[in-house]
Design a binder for these strands. Sequence first.
RNA 1: GCGCCCGUAGUGAAACGGAUAUCAUAACUGCCUUCGAAGCAGUCGUUGGGGGUUCGAAUCCCUCCGGGCGCACCA
Length: 535
Amino acid sequence: MIKEEIFELVKNIIPAGTPFDVEFQEEGKFGHYSTSVAFALAKKEKKSPEIVAKEIIETLQKNELFEKIEIAAGGFINFWVSKKTLYEELKDILERKNTYGQNEKGREKKIRIEYVSANPTGPIHIGNARGGPYGESLARVYEESGYEVLREYLHNDVGGQIEKLGETLWYWYEKKVGRETAFPEGGYQGEYLEEVVTAALKKFKNKEDITIQTLTKFGLDYIFENNMNVLRRMGILFDLIRKESELISSGKTQEAIDVTKRMGATKEHEGALWFVPRDEFLEDREAVIVKSNGKPTYFASDIAYHKEKFESGYDLVIDIFGSNHHGHVPKLQALTKLFHFDSDAFKVLLYQFVRVKRGSEVIKMSKRAGTYVTAEELLDEVGKDNMIFSLLSSAPTTHIDFDLDAVKQKSMQNPVYYTQYAYVRAKSIGAKTGVFVLNSDTNLEFLSTDEDLFLIRKLAQFPDIIDACVNDFEVHRLTRYATELARAFHNFYEKERVIGEDEKVFQARIFLIEAVKIVFENLFRIIGISTPESM
RNA sequence: GCGCCCGUAGUGAAACGGAUAUCAUAACUGCCUUCGAAGCAGUCGUUGGGGGUUCGAAUCCCUCCGGGCGCACCA
């Protein structure tokens, strides 16, 4: 982590608590890395940025990490790292192979991440499919940083929506056996549930076994299994599936209600029990936890679930939800106080829904109306790599519009192909040259052209990208970096050769190619896309 | 009405208060007798409007305009 080394060096010679960053410089004209720390410091110390920058440089200049350090534009400090540093980093890649990029920052630390937790009454649709790759990549990035990660999913298998599901399934069943029946009010439209009933009829040999209860149970399991299959196709597997029904049957929901009451965070109003966090919390954070009919609401189980999360001894708890749940967030945050959990160690990350258009017409994602495009359809249409890469290319806060009509034709324009093609090219060279082993005769100094050196610089950025993702949860850096690395390699490929070069250069370049393959493989694994042999 | 999020080249996006706002794609012009042209080189083109904060604003604040979402004894 060259960036981090520089960061630490600077940090040690400036007053503690000064916020600053070291930036990778793509073009190199402002150095390989740079920092604007002198500006911030100048303000504090009431000196000119240039003088502050000079003071910093004087201490750093001796370090053999650098080839050159300069001050520019009145206070920016630009660092050029030495070739030796780059060759060392390249060796590190070749030695560490599939562990290159990993760090130990999360050693002995545990985090749990809840993501997807899809509506159990129908297929995962493209609107919330974004949470899958997002959560999964985040989980992987944490693993790369040495954390022990628990991937979890809440299955909302009780409540009014399940009753509606049952009623709708029953409607289709009656229809299939020729009984006169009306579509239930508030039932789920669309053909999907009819398919579920068809599957149920195949399974139940005896008609007497079919009741609204058995049908509901069958439907829930069937839909859940299908959703898990789709997630598996996207490379997503959970360690823990928490069922709301289990929270209730085990008494945990009731226990959570009791504790909340005892903590004085409830009030009775018109026969119902309300969650009323005290202190600075606003009124709109109030919510019913026990209805006047005595039944707990979903939120009661959510209190139980989060109580469990907070008391499980984990260092960090992350929830990833679609932005339509944002009203829920303050209530959950209020729970950290209730259960004495460090509120900084609980993060709720929201992503905006993906909108789908057909031409200029926006398709509303409604399970109730049956108008949605499923994640599975999109997977079939554009393929896993394309879909994941697209969904991970933008910050979770951006509102993505997918144009269904354009998606297929456009799939070939996806940068994922640009990226994978670079990998295939590298792989193709490697296949021709065979494998070489790094030894004392290897002289990497023959990697000396601008293209050689930039490629190494770019490869060396990889661990810093991983680290940055962990710090701010912005995993879309990964796809960004992938296209940048691909670009660096395509450029190299165009201008330089491996096979046919002078023996010494040839030898050194083989190792460079090998390093490119290693970094792409590690990167693709974290993003969740394949490493194709050919395209 | 109140609250949360978003407006960046034709299109999709990046930029944690920093330097000449990047990247991909589209369009146009070139480049296949040497490791794969799904590539490379070049051209074209961008911060919704208006105020403010400061050495410096796409980024922070105010306001207007446009879009998404949420404001249940649903989950």
